[in-house]
Design a protein around this nucleic acid. Sequence first.
DNA 1: CCATTGCAAGAGCGGTGCTCTCTTTTTGGT
DNA 2: ACCAAAAAGAGAGCACCGCTCTTGCAATGG
Lengths: 236, 236
Amino acid sequence: MSTVKGARARARTEITAAIKDEARGQLAKEGAAKLSLRAVARELGMVSSALYRYFPSRDDLLTALIIDAYDSLGAAAESAHETVAGAEPLARWTAVCEAVRGWALAHPHEYALIYGSPVPGYTAPLTTVPAAARVGLLLIGIVRDAHEHGGLTEPPLPAELLGEAERMAADFAPGLPPEAVAALVAAWAQLYGLVGFELFGQFNRMVEDREPFFRHAVVRLAHGVGLRPVPPEEQA
Amino acid sequence: MSTVKGARARARTEITAAIKDEARGQLAKEGAAKLSLRAVARELGMVSSALYRYFPSRDDLLTALIIDAYDSLGAAAESAHETVAGAEPLARWTAVCEAVRGWALAHPHEYALIYGSPVPGYTAPLTTVPAAARVGLLLIGIVRDAHEHGGLTEPPLPAELLGEAERMAADFAPGLPPEAVAALVAAWAQLYGLVGFELFGQFNRMVEDREPFFRHAVVRLAHGVGLRPVPPEEQA
DNA sequence: CCATTGCAAGAGCGGTGCTCTCTTTTTGGT
DNA sequence: ACCAAAAAGAGAGCACCGCTCTTGCAATGG
């Protein structure tokens, strides 16, 4: 696949990477709205029109950065999860959630790019879906493990939502009780509410000690999904 | 205060309002990033430089729109609350939450303006604080009513958060148990996570039947704050 | 009545995304 | 080894943006 390749192809991938790096730098410094193709080109010593050989438009550059951001966040969450791989589900849940928060605080503009308001007039292409799903899959896996080892209490679910929850389970969380899937999706959204409020300043002059506040909220989120506070030792 | 005033002052307030209206229209159509002073002026039949007599910069126009959006959202929530004024706290809670969601779905770009990622390089001035607090105060009032009538179960709170929660209670929710205040702040953030995920397309291809999904999630949010599912009749 | 003030208009500066043309360089088939 | 084709860079240019400055006009109030 990625064999030696000609000098031209090699240069292309290198320049593409350089453009993304520079763009990511400007994104981190000024935010998505001020990301300017001309400024990126200027910084790289090329003329602005040359950049269009690599990204057909500013939106395409942004899309590439979005996918990278999803992947970076997903990798951070996965690596945090691996460091507690053997632990009880609740500990793994909080580890993943805290990794999400940590990544968001470290990369605020990238987080805003993917979970803030979408850049107006811009709709993310389907290409972003697999990268975007990584954190969700991680949480699903944790809850599934808990369920398979008897560490999951099914949360309540009104009858009118049962069908919807069953469809969701079949679609992307097979083997999980529908009650847990519905609660998990809600918890997932709520997690990003907590992170977003902290990141975007809504907690200013309200919550001071944010790290323990977040940790506690995340544990209660896990309880809401049905993860038991302390699982039994009976797991195979 | 707003007595007859001269023709000049009258014209000024009218033109200011016209500018905001046109800007709001463009905001609704294209989003904040594409809101252009020149386009607003063009549409109003004036030259762009004339607009600077009314708003010293694009950011100031945006700030005015932000305050209006907060007030519009707050008014929607308050009016929804009034229609169920005598009901049990849980019903009032869900009414307010659903009003927030309804307003957000009806005014997506304005919602993005205030609860999405902040416009990069822009930090909201303190002027926005009172308008921004209206929904929060509403929820605090509902929980306080429940507490005063014995319809509140204090949620769990780890010891390390007690001091922080007491400070928060003293700051903006006097008379409420600190446990409830901490849970309420978290629930508030989580509410906006739910709304944001639906609004910004994160639920696409995941949640189809969103209204009942949201209603159920909001009820569970209320339980998390300590609002009892069915309050006793014993209230004075 | 007239000076002061408020406002609209226009030109202009430096910036943006993007397109088009022209030239240079690399590539790959004959 | 050559040479057409493809790829890449350079530059000019279009239409737009926020914002500033100067100029002329009209309403205001002493």
